[in-house]
Computed example of a mutant assay.
Amino acid sequence: MPDAKILIVDDHEDTLYALESALAPLGYLLGRATSGDEALKQVLRGQVGLLLLDVRMPGVGGLEVVRYMRRVEQTQHIPVILLTGFGLDHELTATAFGLGVADLITKPIDPWSLRTKVRYLYDAHRRSLALEQEIRDLRALVKGNGMPDPAARPALPHPDARVPLQRDTGDAAPAQERT
């Protein structure tokens, strides 16, 4: 996903501008949306690698956007950073992290900290997608050559799994002694 964008979602133009200015030095493609509905449409179209999302917006808020994203296979692994100007409370924090949000940041936002978090999450998501694609390519290659699909092999037991001991019935040849 080389051209995936970072989608910034807030209902205030001044906040969108400030966030775009803070992230511009990273050189990533940036997109913007001013509502939860607009954000969902862009996310579902694809090519979003990270979402910066305001918690409280008129209509569909940030938490509702994340709830919907987590139910759709194509969007459930997109990292989300939630932004709030109303402070953090236990209920918001528990709900956000329960939905798998990567981080919850209060406004005003420190640009250096934001860039660090965004760079890490965006790059990690891109690496994960690249690995998934490589696995799909290798599986297709294996299937195309008539080789057995490694995914179809039975799973090996966990190393800590208990294996029943076999009793020596005297039928087998004696084990070689170690020197």
Score class of each variant (00 low, 15 high):
I81A: 03
L40W: 07
L63M: 14
A152H: 02
K117I: 04
E20I: 10
E38Q: 13
S128W: 15
I6Y: 06
P108A: 01
V65A: 09
I105M: 15
Y120R: 15
T75G: 08
L99W: 05
Q166P: 06
D14A: 13
N145Q: 15
A173M: 10
H125A: 08
L30S: 12
I6F: 09
P58N: 08
R139T: 12
R115V: 01
L104R: 04
T15L: 08
V55T: 02
P148M: 03
L50V: 02
T34A: 05
G98T: 07
L40A: 03
T179Y: 11
Q74E: 15
G49E: 02
L30R: 09
L7S: 04
P58H: 05
L114K: 04
L121D: 11
R32E: 11
E132N: 08
L121P: 11
L82S: 01
G85I: 00
E134Q: 15
H77K: 13
G144F: 14
S113M: 11
I109L: 09
L138H: 05
D14S: 13
A24E: 12
T116A: 15
L7C: 07
T93M: 13
Y120W: 14
V9T: 06
P164G: 01
K41V: 11
P164V: 01
V118T: 06
D89C: 03
R115K: 02
A33S: 09
G170E: 02
L44N: 09
L16Q: 04
I8H: 10
L83D: 10
V48C: 05
G98F: 08
T95Y: 14
L82D: 08
I105E: 00
N145W: 13
M57Y: 07
S21M: 10
I105K: 05
W112M: 06
L83G: 01
R70S: 11
L63P: 11
S128I: 02
F97Y: 15
E13C: 00
A173R: 11
L50F: 15
I105V: 14
R139F: 08
K143Y: 08
L131P: 10
L92F: 04
V72A: 01
D10I: 06
H12V: 12
I105P: 01
G36Q: 05
G27A: 01
P150G: 03
G31Y: 00
R167F: 11
E73H: 13
M57G: 12
Y122R: 09
D89E: 05
Y17S: 05
R178M: 10
D11G: 00
R32F: 13
L88P: 03
I6P: 02
E177D: 01
V80R: 14
A24M: 09
P108H: 00
D123S: 06
G87K: 06
A152F: 07
I109F: 03
A152W: 05
V66I: 12
L23C: 00
T116S: 13
L51P: 03
A18N: 03
P111H: 03
R139A: 13
R136A: 02
V142N: 04
L30I: 09
R136I: 08
P2C: 03
S128P: 04
F97T: 10
A94K: 06
R178L: 12
F97P: 12
R70W: 07
K107D: 03
T84R: 10
